[in-house]
Design a protein around this nucleic acid. Structure first.
Lengths: 171, 171
DNA sequence: GCGATGTTACTCGGATACTAACTGTCCGAGTAAGCCAGG
DNA sequence: CCTGGCTTACTCGGACAGTTAGTATCCGAGTAACATCGC
């Protein structure tokens, strides 16, 4: 298990499919997005309710419902998605060992617990450094990288795949 | 559970007690170090065998045996300890979702899996950024921060505490 | 025609297994220092 | 004196239970679009 979960990966890949770099608003259902990528639907559905609570997406309920980005893709950072899905979990959980020292005998002096533990503060610095990298990249940036690799006809193929499913939806 | 485990915290706190900023070689037993800090002995013992395999410490076996740093404390980085204890685990585990796309139909084209996934490469960048912070701090640096906070008599108190135990060891 | 009804697909949210990793504990093996009795 | 055995404390390493978080699945509730039926 890694610190940044598979849920984040699922969410990012799904979001990239509805993140048009030109800013065109694209809507799709969670089922389409999950099956398009071979990823468990029920699980992804839960992820999207988290993204919804974080106000990163807008959902329309009912038949023909779906989701779309709540903001243009260049305003949604990867860090936003990570925090929405994984819930701002800490890189390191300081147990304040410094004032458990046996020579204190149950009454640690004030200097021991003053300020932040040196180890803890270093870990916070490391955490912030990591988060800064994630905050510097947006969905638009990622989609742009992907778009430069994919051939131009790929976008049409995806649209057709989604369209075929859509036309089949309500017989 | 956090990405950087409690084991790392235990190990760092223990190592700091035998990391003399002046470079004086200090030796102590794992039992002393663990009980000095109110931390489970058996668990810490396992951590120290990991540190031993990573060649960060030197252990002398038998009665009156113990542990000392294998290198001067300014040559042991926090990252060394993290990797030794947690085993270089990845921040993010890419599942290569990009070539599961349904429009590929079981035969993803070469461009899809070419190079590194954009999400994956961003996560690697974030990981490296975090590791760089940990690699920039050494045991000597941490010990120095701690030493500036602790009053001068604290070192003597710890020595006395360890000495009292030592004199009691073999009756 | 046109409105009421039913069906379908969708998002939401709770409940629940299953799995992997971390934490903590127990125990035996091998090693070396000090003690002590017998020569 | 001194040599061999004994006790003790130490590091090493395997085995294992308890806990927690992540992953995945199932199911019901509420909502909205479309089709159908009755008038």
């Amino acid at each position: 298990m890694s610190h940044i979960s598979a849920g984040v990966e699922y969410a990012l890949h799904c979001l990239l499919y509805i993140a048009d770099p030109q800013g065109k608003v694209t809507e799709a259902s969670v089922r389409d997005l999950s099956e398009l990528q071979g990823v468990p639907f029920d699980y992804v559905a839960k992820l999207f309710t988290k993204l919804h609570k974080a106000r990163l997406i807008i959902a329309t309920e009912g038949a023909k419902g779906g989701i779309r980005l709540a903001k243009p893709p260049h305003e949604i950072t990867v860090l936003d998605v990570v925090d929405a899905v994984d819930g701002r979990k800490k890189l390191f959980d300081c147990k304040e060992i410094r004032n458990r020292c046996a020579v204190f005998e149950d009454t640690p002096p004030s200097w021991a617990s003053a300020g932040l533990c040196a180890i803890h503060s270093l870990m916070i610095e490391a955490d912030n450094s990591m988060r800064a990298v994630l905050a510097a990249q947006t969905l638009a940036g990622l989609a742009g990288q992907f778009g430069r690799k994919a051939p131009p006809e790929f976008g049409q193929q995806v649209s057709r795949w989604l369209g075929d499913r859509g036309s089949r939806r309500i017989p």
